[in-house]
Design a protein around this nucleic acid. Structure first.
Lengths: 203, 203
DNA sequence: GTCTATAGAAGGATAGAC
DNA sequence: GTCTATCCTTCTATAGAC
């Protein structure tokens, strides 16, 4: 019973993940999810009551998965430069496996900003932020980083990694016209972005 | 007649712009648009036949507005550094006036990539791209720009400008926790991004 | 737990009067 | 050109049999 239930619930969850990622909350249809899971609509409601419940479950899981990838930045035992290289390699590799995730999350949060608040209310960003400065204060003499420019630099790093996927639809078309291969461009980006940032912040 | 017609059509168009930007194609309701325009649903169909027609009209106008802001890059009579500074100043200022536009366009194109093809099929990107190298070949000795890294650099510039708005929903919440003001951050970004890029590409 | 059938609401679109 | 009334389809959600 529990074994079978687990399987069905998981089938639904996986189907819902794909459909929501593809169509967004308002564009997704319960019928599409049921079809993809190989069951009927009634079962969706049996397991998740409403469309909103189902979406909430999917979104929370995906968003956590996404934001957890930022964690290594805040851990120690790596130099600042190593952290930057590590981040781009890990984060871009993750998005190569989940190319639609960034656009999906950004869009759903823009439509409903309260969603994100539940996810991050437990995190003390103020401290997390300053932790970076604290951890690397003995190597800061090498870099143009201050408490004032930190938000700029952090969002810059995020954007270099995330934007190519959030804008995938546009870039693929433009690249096609230029004879550039999107996948190769992404592969190249792991090192390019790291080099770019390090060059820019080094005194 | 024509005067009055113009007014109604414009009222509808403006209302539709707001609702589509806010809710997306699938989330927008004809009733919301009618309400906002101060008329009834039937009149929407009288002027624009279908929801898709209306969306197409709005989307095309907005996308053109957005992409036109990239044009100055391809015009001459400015040094490469001046172009970069000019671009960030102009483009970010434009998005300050239209903060929801980037997310809206990125998202709708991801949902339906064919949309973009109509808009850009007339542009020869291959040439446009190389034009940059051509225009500045006498100052390229100063920069780490090759035909191979050009796509990386162009998308990097775009991302530094666009991402903060595409991720506005997230950033505002995170910034609030950190005591950072989003508007000030954006204002600061015009120069920060330009400095950052120039520093990174200068040999 | 899973299905069929259907209720009930909402949305896009049209007919027809003025 | 603008409105009211309404059709038709689609979608979420539930009832009830197995």
């Amino acid at each position: 019973m529990s074994e079978n239930e687990k399987l069905t619930e998981e089938k639904i969850f996986e189907a819902a993940t794909i459909v929501f990622e593809e169509e967004g909350l308002s564009g997704a249809r319960m019928q599409s999810i049921a079809d993809r899971a190989g069951i009927n609509k009634a079962l969706l409601h049996y397991y998740f009551r409403t469309k909103d419940h189902l979406f909430e479950a999917v979104f929370t899981k995906l968003a956590k998965k996404m934001f957890m990838k930022f964690n290594p930045i805040f851990e120690n035992h790596l130099s600042l430069e190593e952290k930057i290289r590590f981040f781009f390699k890990e984060h871009i590799s993750f998005m190569q496996q989940n190319p639609k995730l960034p656009g999906f999350i950004l869009n759903e949060i823009n439509h409903n900003p309260q969603r994100i608040q539940k996810l991050i209310k437990n995190i003390e960003f103020k401290n997390l932020w300053l932790k970076i400065l604290e951890q690397h204060k003995d190597e800061l003499y090498k870099y143009n980083i201050t408490e004032e420019t930190l938000p700029q630099i952090m969002t810059t790093i995020a954007s270099l990694s995330v934007f190519p996927f959030a804008a995938k639809g546009i870039l693929e078309v433009i690249f096609e016209n230029m004879g550039v291969d999107f996948d190769k461009y992404i592969e190249m980006r792991k090192n390019f972005a790291a080099d770019f940032v390090i060059k820019a912040i080094t005194k």
